[in-house]
């Protein structure tokens, strides 16, 4: 059985106290507890402080472009659906640059787990406002205050057809591990939006800020109630942050709907050789 150590790559370069440490550790713990070892998992990384986890997490990794991790993850899953596929991405990465991919990955119910580091700023490029930053947020790119309304990741996922929508907090590692394990085991598209303080650039959404406003969903919370999930998703407008799986339903995932790969993964199939039947179409 693999250990946390086996999953640990190079020494992380994140700022001391950054929420990424918690998320990074939670991912490793979840994988260990699910009995995976680094050679059995594929992780696609976006670009940002979150994506820099590529060097700190041992796995078959693909460090993608900014915004493009999701279509890469989809392609990997289509080619070899036996492998669990995770995407480690940031808020700007996934909801800004890659926003279109996010919507369509939800729609397709592609069996990938998307772990979004939501710190409401662009950390790696020194603190500009992210799509999840609140209206009026002042940053280097919005010195007069952000004009746009924020993206609501949970509501966007829900209304786009995601079959698993969850929210975690980088400051509650054990709870995050539980959520991640459920997300990775879920058959279909799973979103884990992780609230994460950026200790260097975000002086508003700090650990203290979140600690006062997060709460865990009750044990008897109805995960399959879409309307209730939407209500939970919109609590962010009142600065309340539910933690846990806010929505989960069963629906066939994309690769399960492809008869071509019903018996073997695409990469393991025998080569197609009956060309005659194709050639006849042109006679």
């Amino acid at each position: 059985m693999a250990s946390i150590q086996d999953f640990s790559g190079y020494q992380p370069t994140w700022c001391p106290g950054c929420g990424n440490w918690g998320i990074g550790m939670a991912i490793k713990k979840a994988l260990v507890e699910l009995n995976y070892s680094p050679d059995q998992v594929v992780v696609v990384f976006g670009i940002g402080c979150s994506g820099n986890m590529n060097d700190f997490l041992n796995a078959y990794g693909l460090h993608s472009l900014h915004g493009r991790a999701l279509p890469n993850a989809i392609g990997i899953k289509l080619a070899n659906h036996k492998l669990p596929v995770l995407a480690v991405v940031g808020d700007g990465d996934c909801y800004g640059e890659g926003g279109n991919h996010f919507i369509h990955a939800c729609r397709g119910n592609h069996d990938i787990t998307v772990i979004v580091h939501d710190n409401r700023v662009y950390g790696l490029t020194t603190g500009q406002s992210a799509p999840t930053a609140p209206k009026g947020y002042r940053s280097k790119s919005t010195p007069l205050g952000l004009i746009e309304a924020p993206v609501n990741p949970l509501a966007l996922a829900l209304t786009s057809g995601a079959t698993f929508v969850a929210q975690g907090f980088a400051g509650d590692l054990n709870h995050l591990v539980l959520i991640l394990k459920e997300a990775i085991t879920h058959k279909g598209f799973s979103l884990v939006n992780v609230l994460q303080p950026c200790v260097t650039f975000n002086k508003v959404n700090t650990y203290q800020y979140y600690l006062q406003r997060v709460y865990k969903l009750e044990k008897d919370y109805q995960k399959d109630n879409f309307k209730l999930a939407l209500e939970k998703a919109f609590e962010v407008n009142e600065e309340k942050f539910p933690l846990g799986v806010i929505y989960q339903v069963k629906r066939p995932c994309y690769h399960e709907s492809l008869p071509q790969i019903s018996s073997l993964p695409l990469v393991e199939k025998k080569r197609f050789l009956e060309y005659d039947s194709l050639i006849k179409e042109f006679i």
Partner: peptide, 29 residues
């Protein structure tokens, strides 16, 4: 698709198109 086993994905845009292909190629096909 059914005859040959090829998977064809009509993705949301050309950026997703090429990145789907790159993901699949990374995975070995």
């Amino acid at each position: 698709q059914e005859k040959t086993g090829i998977i064809v994905r009509h993705a949301e845009d050309e950026i997703a198109v090429i990145n789907t292909a790159l993901g699949a190629s990374f995975a070995g096909v």
